[in-house]
């Protein structure tokens, strides 16, 4: 039953992602791999689109994946799933947030969680890099050869790095990079 599975999987993502989606990506990677829903590449495409459309990124991503897998109702199930844990937890916390904030156990446990979240975001970075350069061959590279696709990726990464250092807006960066990718692909790969 795809609808129930979508709801449940996104409920888990919503319930365990701390710090605004940083922990979300490794969870999503495991989710789509476990169910064989889509390739890692498709997932990263979705992440790119979700970051450059308005609204909460988690909602964008869950709606997008839900629609692809189960149409409008699938989107509804996935989005409800990702939103519900937050909603319920905040409803409880909002009533007693001073106690929550000053609770020593929760405070320390959250401190302990910070480096783990940094680690999880590191994992996401490694996974995406590994995926982008999956056809990368060190011997060919040493011989001065790079597959055309790796070459394009490499060039775009350098451009995106420069854009980021120049403090361009993330959406402008994604849009510019999609343009560069399309142009180079068209010119080099035809």
């Amino acid at each position: 039953m795809i609808y129930f599975t979508l709801f449940l999987e996104f409920f888990k993502v919503g319930a365990f992602s701390f710090g605004g989606g940083a922990a979300m990506l490794p969870m999503l990677e495991q989710m789509v791999e476990h169910h064989g829903w889509m390739t890692q590449e498709q997932l990263y495409n979705f992440v790119g689109v979700s970051e450059s459309t308005p609204g909460p990124i988690a909602v964008n991503l869950s709606t997008y994946i839900g629609t692809i897998l189960g149409g409008p109702f699938g989107a509804l199930c996935a989005t409800t799933g990702v939103v519900l844990p937050s909603f319920l937890i905040i409803l409880i916390v909002a009533k007693a947030y001073r106690q929550f904030k000053e609770n020593q156990y929760i405070g320390n446990a959250l401190d302990m969680l910070k480096p783990v979240i940094v680690g999880l975001l590191g994992c996401a970075t490694i996974s995406i890099a590994a995926n982008i350069f999956s056809g990368f061959d060190i011997q060919r590279f040493a011989g001065g050869l790079l597959t055309a696709q790796n070459g394009i990726s490499f060039f775009v990464i350098i451009c995106a790095g420069i854009f980021t250092i120049k403090k361009m807006h993330p959406i402008a960066i994604i849009l510019a990079c999609s343009g560069i990718g399309a142009l180079l692909g068209y010119v080099i790969l035809g």
Binding site: A22, Y44, V47, I128, I132, Q149, I174, G181, L184
Partner: peptide
């Protein structure tokens, strides 16, 4: 052409996430 654009998008996502990680 859309697939080529997505090559660019994936590369930019990598950079954005890398810098987010660096910030954290």
């Amino acid at each position: 052409i859309v697939q080529y654009a997505f090559i660019g998008i994936r590369a930019s996502v990598l950079v954005l996430i890398f810098f987010a990680w660096l910030g954290m």
